[in-house]
Write a protein that binds this DNA or RNA. Structure first.
Length: 306
DNA sequence: ATGCCTTTGAAGGAG
DNA sequence: CTCCTTCAAAGGCAT
């Protein structure tokens, strides 16, 4: 098998970019989307020297997209803070058409395949703890309302003058323009259905063919501020850790105000190829989803629970 | 000098 | 099965 990386994936025999050697630092990939690599070595190879070269996780579709578009956004917006850039990229990502996203999903999939072939026994867990992310532990005392309190730096939100770029956190409204774009409508993640790019999966929630929608919708308490969803950091159960926008439980309304999203829908059971284009429901759901999150990321008060 | 912030997606652990 | 947690990139900023 071993299908040769049709794209810029590394050729065989070459140290995969995922490997970050303390001494070896590959130059910024010349390829457009080159897999992970170089990086500032998050792992400060302690003196103890990492026994292993520290194999990094393969980049996912969004990460690949970021790598490719970051420079562009930086040039356009003249922004430098990655946090702000990422916010913009996140919004642009949602604005991408299915085909466009599918391209990255495919790349990511190939990356993963190659990665697994190169490092069969490797597990993402191997890197756990290397970053020492402590994510502010949720204080037991802190009330959930702490969301307004950000002990750490507030979100970077790029300057307003940069309106040329999508306003990431502008939140005020300008945010919705982009995602709301009908044409894009978004998005569908497409999922890894390389064979049928056209069938790209509708909901961007199911990137995994095997099925795993998980969070995104459900997740009442989590609701990651920024709109998103995902978890990522924060969340930690109610934590007060929300980085920038912490929405108190129940605020997102995703449960109370939007019954639609109450259940993610068992797409998981569906085969990627089976998923047909975004049906009205999906779009509606997505739309609501995005609108809710993006247009009013902070609208905490939608409906307490009534 | 190190971690945080920010984004989405992937993957594994825990319940 | 569902939910949660961590890491992947990256560059300014905070500690």
């Amino acid at each position: 098998m071993v299908t040769p990386p049709s794209h810029s994936l590394h050729q065989t025999g070459i140290p995969h970019p995922a490997i970050v050697s303390p001494a070896i630092k590959q130059e910024p990939s010349s390829d457009n989307i080159s897999p992970s690599m170089h990086a500032k070595s998050p792992v400060p190879s302690k003196k103890e020297e990492d026994k292993k070269p520290h194999i990094k996780k393969p980049l996912n579709a969004f990460m690949l997209y970021m790598k490719e578009m970051r420079a562009k956004v930086v040039a356009e917006c003249t922004l430098k803070e990655s946090a702000a850039i990422n916010q913009i990229l996140g919004r642009r990502w949602h604005s991408l058409s299915r085909e466009e996203q599918a391209k990255y999903y495919e790349l990511a999939r190939k990356e993963r395949q190659l990665h697994s072939q190169l490092y069969p026994g490797w597990s993402a867990r191997d890197n756990y703890g290397k970053r020492k992310k402590r994510k502010r532990e949720n204080k037991p005392d802190s009330k959930p309302e702490d969301f307004s309190i950000r002990s750490k730096k507030q979100c970077v939100q790029y300057l307003p003058s940069e309106k040329m770029c999508d306003s990431p956190a502008s939140s005020h409204g300008s945010m919705l323009d982009s995602p709301a774009t009908p044409s894009a409508a978004l998005a569908s993640p497409a999922a890894p259905a390389p064979t049928h790019s056209e069938q790209a999966q509708p909901l961007s929630l199911t990137t995994k063919p095997e099925g795993r929608i998980h969070h995104h919708f459900s997740v009442p308490g989590k609701a990651s501020g920024s709109a998103s969803s995902s978890s990522s950091s924060s969340s930690s159960s109610s934590s007060s850790s929300q980085p920038s926008i912490s929405i108190p439980v129940g605020t997102l309304s995703s449960q109370s105000s939007t019954p639609i999203l109450t259940r993610p829908i068992p797409f998981t059971s569906l085969h990627p190829s089976m998923l047909s284009p975004p049906s009205s429901f999906h779009q509606a759901a997505l739309h609501s989803h995005h609108s809710l999150f993006q247009s009013q990321p902070l609208s905490l008060v939608t409906k307490p629970t009534e």
